[in-house]
Write a protein that binds this DNA or RNA. Sequence first.
DNA 1: GAGCTATATAACCGCAAGGCAATGTTTTGG
DNA 2: CCAAAACATTGCCTTGCGGTTATATAGCTC
Lengths: 111, 111
Amino acid sequence: MTFEVLAEPVRRRILDLLRERPRLVGELTAELGLSQPGTSKHLRVLREAGLVRVRAQAQRRWYELDPAPLAEVDAWLAPYRWMWADRFDALERHLDADAAQEAAQETEEER
Amino acid sequence: MTFEVLAEPVRRRILDLLRERPRLVGELTAELGLSQPGTSKHLRVLREAGLVRVRAQAQRRWYELDPAPLAEVDAWLAPYRWMWADRFDALERHLDADAAQEAAQETEEER
DNA sequence: GAGCTATATAACCGCAAGGCAATGTTTTGG
DNA sequence: CCAAAACATTGCCTTGCGGTTATATAGCTC
């Protein structure tokens, strides 16, 4: 389940934000530039995946990170990790390839 | 893009199979228990994500793993990695929680 | 307690994703 | 050559997801 949850870019951003410090729904909504219900919906998914916890303080909800389920992702990734020799070089090569491919896809979409 | 591609359980299984050795489309189709076009469709997605490469030999296509894009996932995961103290304990706890939650969800779905 | 604040939930919409059957393409074998 | 083998692509259907607006709920404030 964790993989599906992380597939959403918005949800990864939420986790990245919560990595710094706990946040209110309102703060997240502002930083993500989406509607409040949209944010709440993503938070619900993250909650059910166990990736975030909530503390209620009056009407406010403090959302904080719970990284435990990420261990599942890490575990899946583990047997692959030795395979790319220089990890950072591989990432850079991949990102370059991405840029090239996106350009190619745009060309393709113009047909 | 890599995260979205990995969200599909079937595609993760394909990668796991290719981690052992390159395979033909037919072999994968058999092991995945899905239609041949279904398999080809997933392979196309994996190809476009740069996660697999193909070598043609007559009508046969040997698919092999290319782990490079996984570096992107690893890079995203990196700043979280220190956060779960004992990695394996965290995973076990999470998997236990999963089982409990799935049971709870089934109960919920019965309404 | 009336209204405001902060968040959750509900209802609806559009689209993309995954599945299958049918068909196209290429290469091999006889 | 012709039939079969091995894949890829196409077309179609259904489902689920992400987004928004509208509405409910809960707690604070004055």
